[in-house]
Amino acid sequence: MRTVIFTPTGKDGRLIAALLERAGKPCHSADTFLQLCASIEEGAGAAIIAEEAFAHESIAPLLEVLQHQPPWSDFPVLLLTVSGRVTAESERLRKQREPLGNIFLLERPLRPETLLSTLEFALRGRQRQYQIRDQIRQYALAQEALLRSEKLAVTGRLAASIAHEINNPLEAITNLLYLMRCDPSPEQMNVLLSEAEQELARVTEITKQTLRFYREPSQPTETDVVSVLDSVLKLYANRMAAAGVTVERELRTRDAFVLSTPGELRQVLANLIGNAIDAMRGGGRLRVRLSELSSCSFASSIRISIADNGSGIPPEVLPSIFEPFVTTKGETGTGLGLWVTSEIMHKNGWTIRVRSRRAPGRSGTVFSIFIPKFDAPSTPTAHAASAGARD
């Protein structure tokens, strides 16, 4: 890593540059604070600055660069001070350098060994900072890959549900065509054709619901929660029927509009409803409730509750249920669904709660989602909702 040297007066700059070159440490001399700042932003490892530079130029550009470092960065500055008693000028310089942060004070005259060892220590610290930066980037890439993986898994599960939903009316149409060939009388033909049209209407509706996944806006917009919820329940209808799961749908409000991308809201609901169905392998009851909450402290919020009377979540798993790769489904689960759900919730400033019980005869799980209600721009309370809505 390169060291930047800024000593506007005297021979210190040339002497330090020569010393570093002999020690095999790349360096570069800056003539102004602006050049110094440019070198730091380009990726310097450390800076050596003579304190008298503060008396000749404004350090505002340097402060601006140092105060806007990324969270992982703490750029090291080796400051060459002047020995002697405390004076008004030395006090002024001391106060001026305080905001610089990670400073190593070296009093002149100093030994070359002292300068080299201090610089080596500063460069090692800077190297560790870059390692932390790389780890943060790798973690972010891993998170992005996991999100993509779970989105593909959700798409696969929804595709399977859609295939089942479309297959049923197609089988019915095939049977109706067979009956038409067997009994070609006009009266019976009209009845069979009417039934076939109804089955084709079912296929058309399922296709429309599927196409919405790919035609929805990618930016947050006014979203009807009831419409999104109904679309998810329709996609899972065949799977719930096959599993012996009945649905109780309770809408305490129909004015349920939120600011969201429909795709993200649909993915959250699909994850939670899919998990609820998986927890009721022997059949059960799925209760979906939509309500509006208001309080003096918070603007109106929409609460979506999804409850099942399935097997429940083990108490030892519940505290980590939103962490990646945590699953109660054994080899059939990816352990990413609830983690993706929590990431979507966090990104949008929503809140999610979970309660679960495993008592014999009284087991089940309830997930509650709290989303600030979307008001029209003309409404005084528009966009005043708090992300942490509470009931």
Results as ranks from 00 to 15, higher is better:
Asp183Pro: 01
Thr207Tyr: 01
Pro220Gly: 10
Thr204Pro: 03
Arg215Gln: 13
Gly156Trp: 04
Pro169Asp: 06
Asn175Met: 05
Val154Ser: 09
Ala159Pro: 07
Lys234Phe: 13
Asp224Asn: 12
Lys208Cys: 08
Glu120Arg: 02
Leu179Tyr: 13
Gly125His: 14
Leu115Gly: 04
Thr223Asp: 10
Ala160Val: 00
Tyr139Met: 14
Leu211Cys: 08
Phe213Asp: 13
Pro186Ala: 10
Ala145Ile: 04
Gln219Thr: 12
Glu197Thr: 10
Ile162His: 04
Ile166Arg: 00
Glu222Ser: 14
Asp134Thr: 00
Phe213Ile: 11
Phe121Pro: 01
Ser231Cys: 00
Glu144Val: 00
Gln129Met: 12
Ala140Met: 05
Arg181Met: 12
Glu165Thr: 03
Arg124Ala: 11
Ser161Gly: 02
Ser149Pro: 07
Tyr139Ile: 14
Phe213Tyr: 15
Tyr236Met: 11
Thr174Leu: 01
Leu147Tyr: 02
Glu120Asn: 09
Lys151Asp: 10
Leu233Pro: 00
Ala153Ser: 13
Ser194Gly: 13
Ala122Phe: 03
Ala142Pro: 04
Ala142Glu: 07
Gln129Ile: 03
Asn168Trp: 02
Val225Arg: 15
Glu187Asn: 02
Gln219Ala: 10
Thr114Cys: 08
Ser185Pro: 04
Val203Pro: 03
Asp230Leu: 11
Ala145Cys: 05
Glu171Met: 08
Ser227Thr: 14
Leu192Gln: 06
Glu197Leu: 04
Arg133Cys: 07
Ser117Gln: 13
Ala201Glu: 12
Thr114Gly: 03
Leu119Phe: 06
Lys208Ala: 14
Pro169Arg: 06
Leu229Phe: 05
Ala153Arg: 12
Ser231Met: 01
Gln188Ser: 12
Leu235Gly: 15
Leu200Cys: 05
Ala160Lys: 09
Ser194Pro: 02
Val226Lys: 12
Cys182Ala: 14
Arg128Cys: 08
His164Ala: 14
Val191His: 05
Pro186Ile: 08
Ser149Glu: 15
Arg239Lys: 14
Ser149Tyr: 14
Arg181Val: 13
Thr204Glu: 13
Lys234His: 15
Glu187Lys: 07
Gln138Leu: 14
Ala201Phe: 07
Lys151Phe: 06
Met189His: 08
Glu171Thr: 12
Lys151Pro: 02
Val225Glu: 15
Ile206Val: 15
Arg212Phe: 08
Phe121Asn: 13
Leu119Asn: 06
Gly125Pro: 12
